[in-house]
Design a protein around this nucleic acid. Structure first.
Lengths: 155, 155
DNA sequence: TGTTTTCCCATGGTATCCCATAAGAACCCA
DNA sequence: TGGGTTCTTATGGGATACCATGGGAAAACA
């Protein structure tokens, strides 16, 4: 099986919980689940989420600088201070923290977007806009060459 | 589970006590808790705190200088003179000493910031400012250089 | 003895655990 | 192929455990 693919929109309940798509949970479990890891994206209103793979990727970036140096401290604050590790309950749900709410604008629905080695957490409407924009850009990039590939509409 | 992640702001009570975030306590316990170690940061208005991992990192740093040399002695004085080891009570609280107060400007609220191998103690408002700055710097550091030799695109 | 520190318990709010249910998907077997 | 059955999944809600916080009492200190 590959990584995280497709996207799903689930409902937030009164307690601020939302079900993580079952297929995403399966990927996390397969990669040796030790905890979900979430970090605010620096360039869009989404939160990156993943398991060990994502954490390793982030660790690698911060290890490029010597510890205790000003540069490393700044990086660590930006990376680890702006992240969190939500628990997943027995039914496969996570709670959307205030940090995620503030950064994404999520209110009552959550869109999970698979991106292979990680997935993103979006407010549904913002994701729609972002995706439309991304497709425009992709089209522009491909314009010189082959016709844009068509693809179906998942959920 | 990884190291210290996320950030929390807790309230200082009338006796000068503040709860250390439960998830941070869990990390300390997991790494074999022998005492909390606090040292004023040399380049910002925060205090570094942590357990054995932080201490090991500092030791590694000072070992770069030959023992008994003037440089090593100076460093040792600077490091250990600016540090302390606060007790943690049965409810997971520490008391904010005058040294920490003076260096951070903390009055009635304390922000704990996870940085993986250590965490920092901040006055909330100052942390907000530092964080904004840190994010700018992190962006520059990660995009300007750091050619991730692994797979392509970071986030 | 007065003051500060340390230990212990109380409490309100929140998060977590556990079970129930409904809808849909997959499955099975005639 | 079709109809019924079982499983999975998302969602709701009650009960419980945990956590941050406040305050009193005992202990240490000056």
């Amino acid at each position: 099986m590959a990584g995280f693919v497709a996207h799903f929109t689930n409902r937030l309940d009164a307690k601020g919980r939302v079900s993580i798509p079952a297929s995403f949970r399966a990927v996390l479990a397969r990669d040796g689940f030790e905890g979900l890891y979430c970090i605010t994206s620096s360039h869009c209103d989404a939160v990156d989420a993943g398991g060990n793979d994502l954490l390793a990727e982030i660790n690698k970036r911060s290890e490029a600088f010597t510890k205790l140096s000003p540069d490393h401290d700044a990086l660590a604050v930006a990376l680890f201070g702006a992240s969190e590790s939500p628990k997943i309950d027995g039914d496969g749900r996570m709670t959307i923290s205030d940090m995620i709410r503030d950064h994404t604008g999520i209110t009552d629905h959550v869109t999970f977007v698979g991106m292979n080695y990680k997935f993103q957490i979006w407010e549904p409407e913002k994701f729609r806009e972002y995706r439309a924009e991304a497709q425009r850009r992709a089209l522009a990039m491909l314009s010189g060459q082959a016709p844009a590939p068509s693809q179906g509409e998942p959920s």
